[in-house]
Design a protein around this nucleic acid. Structure first.
Lengths: 332, 332
DNA sequence: GTGAAAGCGCTAACAA
DNA sequence: TTGTTAGCGCTTTCAC
């Protein structure tokens, strides 16, 4: 059996309450007794049981993080931002992958709340009604990171994806391109459908370019899928000359397709995309991108959650972080 | 206040014990009472409190995972393997980043064990004495994933890195190369020092090539650092003609350095490396590699941990998974 | 500054 | 098949 607070109390000839005070840095303990207790703790090798503490105090110093897929560098980077701030505030993280399945998300929410997390950070393509309900009835705060809330019900941390998309496509249009392809991951993802696509269309409209649904390619959000999609794109008789890619994996798949075909970037095609990892600097030519501050998105989401958990005043529940443009070599 | 098991018991006119039995799928409950209890649970919206359950049962159905850095694709992939098997056995994961700092690792171990995890998976470059001690006195099983244990004290899951390195370098030697560079991350990492370097040296020796310390480059384990190191490598008067890189990030940094300098792979240099991500297929030429089954490493480690946690017989505590060779275009 | 005692919400004997 | 009753190890009033 492990050493308990009671064993320490007996050994030090004090009550459990006093040991508890020492362990929790309560000031109402005489220095000499504190010292005595500390010695006994050391001698017996006492380690507080966080589960018992959680039951008694109703605080677990643990937060839940539900992420589509931690092996996706987008979420891995975001999670690292969450984790670092969590560490700073002495929270542990229960991390679960949902694979974006709505049923799984709900299961995980129930599961995490059942474990009495003190707060939760949720990431998803789109919030299902069931997930929304589960988060609504939760007795602890919830923050969405890199995830839209179309009902403005929860605290969120994002960048202005639409504006970013707008500026990216505007750059392409200002370079004289008339036929600009938009290659995106699934449009069931709110950010793709409501922001990136909308920004793309607005930029075209502002540039006096007519929309053409044939130029929008909805594909799997992977390098391989993008590489394959090139084979379809190349068949256009009136070939497009510029590409706006929803992210860097897609852009690189396209880039390789183009180059393996003997065409040149940026001469035959100009490319711009959202940047989620350093792959954009590794490929040649290096890609011009909208740099998304993933780490910061996570860090700020966690910081916001700490405020919510301690009932601090929060000026704004809907945080928009700035993005950067990285001018490199895939655009002239 | 949340609904407790007691509220359900009262509502259903049964004892807490019966409700507990229903919740835990204990068969000793009459179908009719089970139904009645289930209805009350539904009606009241009862959700079991896992913390209370953990305190009473001494099982938290949570395991700890300590990883150097989740934003590193190597560990992200490994963690995904762990997570999927954990889900299968209904365990949650507390995930923490150590940044390979020994002091932090110890803190985290104490912290995780304090949270009463039912088991723990540990990953690190090298096990410090303090970390070893902490894991030794733990009352729950520990498994090391992708991490060496030079004292064979813990259960581990790895591949045979030395043999993999040996074969990689042997391939280079058999292609006629005499001056083969080894570019590795820090040699304070056990796997680099005790396996990859040893395999490299053994292959050279077997090929009758004399060792030359000047051909071993110990650098930071990053793309940028490798890119920089090329500037040093190019200054050799008697230029090497082949490179064995410790991992794909290093290999790609080197590759880009070489190509940006106008040299060709594999004509001027042949390259082979350990593969941890799909970057090796994305670059041109595609890299010939030793493919490390990261996901499986994690999955098998977790499976092993479940056996240890339920006191099942375990045939072998030191698991060695097979690796594959991926012949691609960076080697002739 | 310290102690006594009542829980926190559940599981798990043991009885019935 | 069901209920009674101790805890699990800690925090937190409330007294003194």
């Amino acid at each position: 059996m492990a050493v308990t607070i009671y064993d320490v109390a007996r050994e030090a000839n004090v009550s459990m309450a006093t040991v508890s005070r020492v362990v929790n840095d309560n000031q109402n303990v005489k220095p000499s007794t504190r010292k005595k207790v500390l010695e006994c703790i050391e001698r017996l090798g006492y380690r507080p049981n966080a589960v018992a503490r959680g039951l008694a105090s109703k605080k677990t110093t643990t937060i839940g993080v539900i992420v589509p897929d931690i092996s996706n560098s987008f979420y891995a980077e975001l999670s690292r931002g969450i984790a670092d701030v969590a560490t700073m505030y002495e929270y542990n993280i229960i991390l679960s992958n949902s694979d974006k399945r709505a049923d799984r998300e709900v299961e995980l929410l129930v599961d995490h709340f059942g474990k009495q997390v003190d707060g939760l950070i949720f990431m998803s393509d789109s919030i299902s009604e069931e997930a929304r309900k589960e988060m609504s009835i939760a007795s602890v705060p919830v923050v969405l990171a890199g995830t839209l809330d179309q009902q403005s019900q929860f605290a969120t941390v994002n960048i202005d994806y639409e504006e970013a998309a707008y500026e990216a496509v505007k750059l392409l249009a200002s370079n004289g391109h008339k036929r600009i392809i938009f290659v995106t991951g699934t449009l069931t993802k709110d950010i793709n459908r409501e922001c990136k696509k909308v920004g793309y269309e607005r930029a075209l409209k502002d540039a006096g370019i007519e929309l053409d649904d044939e130029l929008v390619f909805e594909i799997d959000n992977t390098y391989d899928s993008a590489y394959e999609s090139w084979k379809q794109i190349r068949t256009f008789s009136d070939r497009p000359t510029a590409i706006f890619a929803g992210n860097d994996d897609i852009a690189v798949g396209l880039l390789n397709g183009i180059r393996d075909d003997g065409l040149l970037v940026p001469d035959d095609f100009e490319i711009i995309c959202f940047e989620h990892s350093n792959i954009t600097r590794i490929v040649r030519p290096q890609l011009t991108t909208v740099a998304v501050p993933l780490y910061d998105l996570g860090a700020v989401a966690m910081r916001l959650l700490t405020k919510l958990m301690s009932d601090e005043e929060v000026e704004e529940h809907k945080v928009i972080l700035p993005f950067r443009f990285e001018k490199r070599d895939s655009v002239k």
